Simulated scan of single mutants.
Amino acid sequence: MNTPATTLVIGATGTTGRRVAAGLSAKGLRVKAAGRRATPVDGAQAVRFDWYEPATFGEALDGVDRVYLVPPIGSSDPAEVMLPFLRRARATGVRRAVLLSSSAMPAGGPVVGQVHQALPGLFDEWAVLRPSWFMQNFTGPHHHGRTIREDGVILTATGKGRVGFVDAEDIAAVAVHALADDRAPDTDLILTGPEALSYEDVAGIITDVTGRPVVHRHLTFEQLRERLAAGIPLEFATMLAGMDRAIADGAEDRTSDTVERITGRPPRSFRALMEAEMSRGGT
Rank of each mutant, 00 (worst) to 15 (best):
W133D: 07
D62F: 05
G108M: 05
V163A: 09
K32C: 03
P266W: 07
V98A: 01
D244E: 13
N2T: 14
A175I: 04
V215I: 14
G28R: 06
G231H: 15
M82C: 11
L228S: 01
A237Y: 08
A91C: 10
G121A: 07
V166D: 00
E59L: 07
P120T: 09
F57V: 04
G74K: 11
H116N: 06
T3Q: 12
L155G: 03
T220E: 11
T156K: 00
A118M: 05
K160E: 15
R19S: 10
L100I: 02
A12V: 08
P185T: 05
T3W: 14
N2Y: 07
E222W: 06
L129R: 03
F85G: 01
G63E: 08
V81K: 04
T7Y: 00
K32W: 01
Q45S: 06
L100K: 01
A184Q: 02
A230P: 04
A178D: 06
T207G: 06
D244H: 13
V112I: 15
R254W: 10
R130G: 01
V81L: 04
N137D: 15
Q117T: 05
A241S: 09
A276T: 10
G23S: 02
V67S: 03
A34V: 05
V166I: 14
M239Q: 15
Y199R: 00
G28E: 10
D182S: 14
E235C: 06
G152T: 04
N2S: 15
P141H: 13
G58C: 02
